[in-house]
């Protein structure tokens, strides 16, 4: 396992994503409050760079006519066909068969962003 230091937490604004080169891999990192996430920067659908997409939160299952944001489940939406990937595990939330983008362990240590590959 390789450990990569990607700078300070304040280098990335809360609720945003950034494309990074992590040991030769294209990785998208995302910040949600004090948490950091890292996914491979390639959508498994048709190959878009996820870092060109948007970060948001998923929607809770609701009754007809109700809309609730699930603040506990940050997601990244692909810039092309808008599929939604859970930032924790890289799981696609709208695919009937299991589909995921690689997720890397990422955390903040002494104010620094650490990603393990």
């Amino acid at each position: 396992m390789k450990r990569h230091v990607l700078g300070q937490l304040e280098d990335i604004e809360d609720g945003t994503i950034q494309a990074r080169d992590v040991g030769g891999r294209n990785v998208v990192i995302a910040r949600h409050g004090d948490r950091i996430f890292a996914l491979r920067d390639v959508c498994p659908h048709q190959g878009a760079k996820l870092s060109n997409g948007v970060m948001s939160c998923s929607r809770k299952n609701a009754r007809v006519g109700e809309h609730h944001v699930n603040m506990d489940q940050p997601v990244i939406r692909c810039p092309w066909h808008n599929w939604e990937y859970d930032l924790d595990h890289g799981t696609c939330l709208t695919h009937p068969t299991p589909l995921a983008v690689a997720a890397y362990r990422a955390f903040v240590e002494d104010g620094q962003i650490i990603v393990e590959t």
Binding site: R59, K60, N61, A62, R63, V64, G65, E66, H67, H68, H81, N82, W83, E84, C92, L93, T94, H95, P96
Partner: peptide
């Protein structure tokens, strides 16, 4: 639906 699910969060399945 995969790209538009946020419009219809009541659909729990495809």
């Amino acid at each position: 639906w995969r790209g538009c699910r946020i419009e219809v969060p009541w659909l729990k399945r495809p």
